[in-house]
Amino acid sequence: MKGNEALAEAAIRAGCKCFFGYPITPQTELSAYMAKRMEKSGGVFLQAESEIAAINMVLGAASTGVRAMTSSSSPGVSLKAEGISYMAGSDLPAVIINVQRGGPGLGSIQPAQSDYYQATHAMGHGDFHILVYAPCSVQEMVDVVMLAFDKADQYRIPVMILADGLLGQMMEPVTFPEPRTELPDKSDWAACGHGGKREHHVINSLYLDAPLLEAKVQERFKRYAVIEETETDAELYCCGDAEIVVTAYGASARVAKSAVTAARRKGIQAGLFRPKTLWPFPKKELCEATKHAKQILDVEMSMGQMVDDVRLATECRLPVAFFGRTGGVIPTPEEVLAEIEKLAGGAE
């Protein structure tokens, strides 16, 4: 199944009851699939007049306790930044998918990973975080959608799935879990009409009383701390005795894996560290993976953004080299292998 469509189907099975989209390459098949399937599964599909309207429709639906989702690609996600910040500030759960494309500006329509900073550090104004998942296969995209909805509800935060044009457009075999039927009860906060049975609920992010806003933000950061403690996830491949550890996520991790395998055949002790959560960054797992490493090579489809977090997480104990292609250009395993060999050569 095609990545974009698998994302949509997974969302429906996760109990997503409404999808608000807007056409943008390379993500549009997701909306088209939702247009066909959502209504039949008893949900709502609506193509909004802009990505801004779409994220605000998600805000509205999520406020009433319903699982809601929107998806877009880089420029569209920039338009959603304010809405995402409002949702974080109103403690609203939702899933936002970014099928990244080359940037900045209109950029290109080929895959890229140049929205890493935006997703993990600067998704909108104010102190807040969103959980960011980085799948690297169609199957993992399906699994991560199910997870994203659960975690969004559990922590009452927006959750982003950071994919890219390659993952969205490629086809791979995939198995779907059973559709989720029991959904968490949100009647303690949802604004879906008090029915005369309870105090009225207010979904709001405005606190003109500064100490009150501070207290609100600090409470939220307690939740973030729990997430940082318990929700990190990463894949370690051949890192046990690796002297050179390649760090990469999503599509570039697939390329890096081939390069690491080729390097191993040439007797180079290389390994791959692939974070599955970008925020919270899997620091413990990276330290584990680089226990024997002398060198780290970060590979991304950008000018290098995650590389900062790699340095931070390893507290610059190790030299961190970087290799990246951007603008929609996908690095090849041969190019990455050449970088590994350069580092390995240097090491001897």
Binding site: I52, N56, S63, G83, Y86, A191, I203, N204
Partner: peptide, 12 residues
């Protein structure tokens, strides 16, 4: 029940 919306986005 009331929901506070971003500026200009209440209809959405």
């Amino acid at each position: 029940d009331v929901i506070e919306a971003p500026h200009g986005r209440a209809p959405a």
